[in-house]
Design a binder for these strands. Structure first.
Lengths: 321, 321
DNA sequence: CGCCTAGATAAGCGATCGGTTATCGGATAG
DNA sequence: CTATCCGATAACCGATCGCTTATCTAGGCG
């Protein structure tokens, strides 16, 4: 029974699939499967069994989850405690959905870092779907993205962070540029140039594309939002974008907003972390920070110096440990 | 950071020496030392440092102890939880000092076993000194021996179990047999035939020998009390013994009690286990059991069928896991 | 019916673990 | 000063871990 095995098991139990757990851990599927096999053999219980709809816990597995989860949590706590005892900088791992990670997160993280020098902040990317489990399993300390409040993760606390506007942009040459009061359903057969969050089942962009019934063939997914925007400048296509990031850019992009009815879409990003009694000192400091005007200001500031290379290449994987 | 390493560290911290930890775990000294080295390297903290008087914790080490302790505790809890979920018999590991293990413990354990068929009980031996740490680290569930109440192990609960009389016996041929009102200090230069607990710093027999200033050369330590008694039948020497065990034996030993002033010595054995809120179901059942008349009766019953071979050969080591 | 998805299994590989015996080093006591 | 105790280290070894790629297999679905 190793901590690695326990962590794999907990993630399988929490996420309901070996595949998702493997993705969250950034390893291959058999790695997780065999970790599970070792546990099963050693404990003499199958722990989880596949059913038609995901993986179901056995009675033994159900008991193991909270214990194993706590053990893994204690392991990271141990490391943090010792680092702190030595006066070493505390560590804060922020995960965000890809849209956040490419818009407001860098500035927010930088501002926080400037203020609390004793904390080392790192920024990662994950899908909305995995975020709750990642936070609960302490693979990360803070999550930024859509609201996670109704997820059945009672130990997580989710609060509104930032109100933003989703707009659609295109090159000035685009045939819809300049058109007035465009009907949304007219966009169903346009070419869409989107960032990685189009792969995230629960991202606003994804649900929008789903609602419009845009066929797969008309969607081009880019490894970053910046790349999607660049493509929109050059190719005929529509890109969703966060309003203030595109419009207030000091070096304006070669795209213009489209006058689509119902836009800009008002949306909210939330910040999620463990409940107050079990979060780390650094997490608590971050939580306090995001309530300050300095944080709001940083997020509203135009995006500066963000290059796609700043973001982890494997966008949908969060790797630490 | 593996559980094995954490356990080694905790035991070193608790027992104050690598040697004692190695003994408790039943492994060699370098095994513990290298486990410690791995932890030190990985966490970047020396954790414990040797001083003139034992090992001293660093600030980081001090923080790690409770966390690591909890982790290993959870590991054994996990196994127990799953075993129980499968309806498998619960497991109760009893440790006792060697005097108890050879006198009342077998009957007590057997009686408990007969009553709760769903619990598998095993009996081990350890020194008084190590008992508290062994219980706290869940290497065993129940400890029987001298009182441990003043040991600075706040999570342990210690209650009186059994009042017994310590007497001295010798062969009827012995020159002191039949003598009246023997002065204790007259025994200082006799030959003593004692069981393994003479090696236990805190056993009553040891402190008695210390008080009499019996020279090392006059003490013969046997691998079991039974062996010491047998030797007393055949050789010229005095053996300490638990009164009712020797006197009520259905097949009387060839020894007689000596009329030493101050004897019989009234002593108490205690039972120690984790505090009520963190003990296992089986431990709780055992705790209830020792308060019943059946338990008292079992302990008072003459020792039946006890052979030295029933006791672990390496007397001062407790091995499970 | 065959395809597809997702988990299990096989085979293999390097790193680490966990243990041993033997030796070294440093403080303490006599 | 030397003997001794105790922890650290060296050298070594087998088992396991943790991971990979490739293949197998059981259900669900068109």
């Amino acid at each position: 029974m190793t901590l690695t095995q326990l962590e794999a098991f907990v993630l399988v139990a929490r996420l309901g699939s070996v595949k998702a757990a493997a993705r969250s851990l950034g390893v291959s599927e058999p790695a997780v499967s065999s970790a599970l096999a070792s546990l099963r053999q050693q404990l003499g219980d199958s722990l989880v069994q596949r059913t038609s709809s995901g993986m179901e816990l056995t009675p033994g597995g159900r008991r193991l989850v909270p214990i194993a989860s706590q053990m893994v949590g204690l392991a990271v706590e141990a490391e943090a405690a010792i680092r702190q005892a030595q006066g070493a900088p505390d560590n804060l791992r922020v995960v965000a959905t890809s849209d956040v990670a490419e818009s407001v997160a860098p500035a927010l993280v930088a501002a926080f870092n400037a203020k609390s020098k004793a904390v080392e902040v790192s920024l990662g990317v994950c899908s909305t779907e995995d975020m709750a489990a990642i936070l609960q399993e302490r693979l990360a300390d803070v999550g930024i993205g859509p609201s996670l409040s109704s997820d059945g993760f009672p130990r997580l606390e989710c609060s509104p962070l930032f109100r933003y506007r989703l707009i659609f942009v295109a090159s000035p040459d685009h045939h819809l540029s300049g058109a007035a009061a465009i009907e949304p359903r007219a966009l169903a057969h346009e070419t869409w140039l989107v960032g990685p969050d189009a792969g995230d089942e629960r991202s606003p962009v994804r649900s929008l594309l789903d609602r419009l019934h845009v066929p797969e063939a008309r969607i081009s997914v880019f490894p970053s939002h910046a790349a999607a925007l660049t493509a929109a400048e050059q190719r005929q296509g529509i890109a969703p974008a966060v309003a203030h990031v595109v419009l207030d850019d000091p070096e304006p992009r070669g795209v213009v907003p489209l006058a689509v009815r119902g836009t800009p879409v008002e949306l909210l990003w939330h910040v999620t972390m463990l409940a107050a009694d079990r979060r780390s000192l650094a997490s608590a400091a971050f939580h306090r920070f995001v309530g300050t005007p300095a944080a709001t200001h940083a997020m509203h500031a135009p995006l500066r110096g963000v290059r796609p290379s700043q973001f982890r290449p494997p966008v949908y994987v969060t790797i630490w440990n």
